[in-house]
């Protein structure tokens, strides 16, 4: 399991219902079932990963964030997790709305487009930045909706989501030290990880 997945697992209370959207190889699901006693399920777009997960006994269905969340009832889950995918979905705002409709909490991680290295590259070269996190050229990238940590915070405010917890994470998934200042996190954090809830959901 990646380090940031450990951080995500740490946000999830044991024995809860979890939907992992983009569950990949199912590492987080397996961890949540075995170590936290969660009813953890996955949605994954890559059929090979789906087959691999189900063959490991994990409940995963083929689908994606844009098209499959709308079919679930309200509050079906305690947590809906979206890892490193928000920037690649067709309609990020709608996906977030669905996550916080079907789940009481949303856990979202995404690569931060406000990182200083990207800013410097844009400024000095005048071309689309390429880093280890943003590693595909503009014409090939699946990341059609990049955003910065500040952009994401603004969206949460507009949509009425409460940020219950946030942290900056570096590329390897290690928690970065910018936990006090969101502006510094936006400059130095490679990835961001948020725990959200709706305003009307009590804090748990």
């Amino acid at each position: 399991m990646r380090l940031d997945q450990r951080l995500i697992a740490g946000m999830i209370r044991p024995g809860t219902r979890v939907l992992d959207v983009g569950s990949g190889d199912g590492a987080l699901l397996d961890h949540l079932f075995r170590n936290s006693g969660c009813d953890a399920r996955g949605i994954e777009i890559d059929m090979k990963e789906v087959t691999r997960s189900v063959a490991h006994g994990l409940p995963v269905m083929h689908g994606d964030a844009d098209h499959d969340l709308a079919h679930y009832p309200d509050n079906a889950f305690d947590y809906v997790v979206l890892q490193r995918t928000l920037q690649a979905v067709e309609r990020p705002r709608e996906v977030l709305r669905q996550m916080l409709r079907i789940g009481r909490h949303a856990i979202v991680s995404f690569p931060n487009f406000g990182h200083w290295r990207l800013r410097v590259q844009m400024l000095t070269r005048g071309r689309m930045p390429m880093t280890s996190v943003w590693s595909t050229p503009w014409y090939d990238t699946p990341n059609i909706h990049p955003c910065t940590i500040l952009d994401f915070l603004t969206l949460c405010e507009d949509e009425g989501y409460v940020v219950q917890q946030w942290m900056a994470v570096d590329e390897d998934g290690e928690r970065a030290p910018w936990r006090r200042s969101i502006r510094l996190a936006n400059l130095f954090g490679e990835q961001a990880l948020f725990l959200l809830r709706r305003k009307d959901t009590p804090r748990t």
């Binding site: 789906v50 087959t51 269905m61 689908g63 679930y72 009832p73």
Partner: peptide
């Protein structure tokens, strides 16, 4: 069928074999 089961938040795995 999978979506009908999603509507009641059933525990569903869904695989299409190539």
């Amino acid at each position: 069928l999978a979506r009908a089961l999603n509507r009641v938040a059933a525990n569903v795995s869904f695989v299409e074999i190539d």
